[in-house]
């Protein structure tokens, strides 16, 4: 349990890893917008290529990325089927008793593509190449302006940091409490659901007590270290945008503009209308 690590940060030396976390948040948002702007086949082809390019640049093994898609496969399949059978239009295609339309196939494929790009985009920029602490830092500084409308951005970031700091500690503690109660004959594996739920009480009660005790002590310790909220606080690591940040943002904005342009001038569903299906 001690060796558990959080998020799915994959340490590697890539340009994406070195980008400012704020840039990565912006890029992730831009990329999501891109995937929704996509309408035409050309747009989606571009999206697929951009996805491949991002994966290659990030130096994260394809295997790792595929693993992150695994949990949503069922949802994607469900979505694809819904689109396949419900969307009508274009060329009709009847196999046995089921009729599907070319437009249905198209939307099924594109909706899956959208989900995949969403997962990969946010995954690569926000979790695989950014440590949780960097991400917290980035979000805090990027959305710092929200403080003006009384949104406690700093407090949220602090909470996030403390949570990240204490999760491993509490996991370890849970382990110890489970062992201690097992030593007194507690049984967590046998019996009905009710019995098993009841068996959790001897674990949860001490765990909560300990978490509150820790919170209390931590609050005092933080106060002793002159903490009094975000105001007047400085940072050890000051985030600075570098050339690579501006370049990457420029590329993404250009990509988005390109997709929008394709939408304006391009034809929707070219294959279908030309009857290529």
């Amino acid at each position: 349990m001690k060796n558990i690590s959080f998020g799915q940060y994959y340490p590697a030396e890539s340009i994406i890893h070195r980008l400012d976390p704020r840039t990565k948040v912006i890029l992730a948002i831009l990329y999501i917008v891109c995937s929704f702007v996509c309408q035409s086949a050309i747009g989606f082809t571009a999206l697929i290529f951009s996805m491949l390019a991002i994966i290659l640049i990030s130096k994260i093994p394809i295997k790792t990325i595929l693993r992150s898609i695994k949990p949503v496969i069922i949802i994607m399949v469900f979505m694809a089927f819904l689109n396949l059978f419900l969307v009508k239009g274009g060329v009709e295609l009847t196999v046995w008793k089921i009729t599907i339309y070319s437009k249905g196939i198209y939307t099924a494929v594109t909706s899956v593509l959208r989900v995949i790009s969403l997962i990969i985009g946010t995954g690569i920029f926000l979790t695989y190449t950014t440590t949780p602490i960097e991400l917290t830092d980035g979000i805090e500084q990027l959305f710092g302006f929200l403080k003006k409308i009384k949104i406690p951005v700093h407090e949220f970031a602090m909470m996030m940091t403390i949570a990240l700091r204490f999760i491993p500690t509490l996991m370890e503690e849970t382990d110890k409490i489970i062992s201690a109660q097992k030593a007194r004959g507690a049984d967590f594996t046998n019996g009905s659901i009710v019995k098993r739920a009841k068996a959790l009480i001897p674990i949860l009660v001490p765990l909560f007590i300990s978490a509150f005790r820790r919170a209390d002590e931590l609050a005092i310790a933080m106060e002793c270290r002159c903490y009094r909220g975000g105001e007047g606080r400085t940072k050890l690591h000051v985030l600075r945008y570098r050339t690579r940040d501006f370049i990457s943002m420029f590329i993404f904005i250009a990509f988005l503009a390109g997709l929008i342009l394709i939408n304006c001038f391009g034809v929707e569903y070219p294959f279908i209308e030309n009857g290529w299906f």
Partner: peptide, 10 residues
């Protein structure tokens, strides 16, 4: 009796 056993009282 594990270390700091008082933390398991519930």
């Amino acid at each position: 009796v594990m270390q700091y056993p008082e933390y398991q009282l519930f």
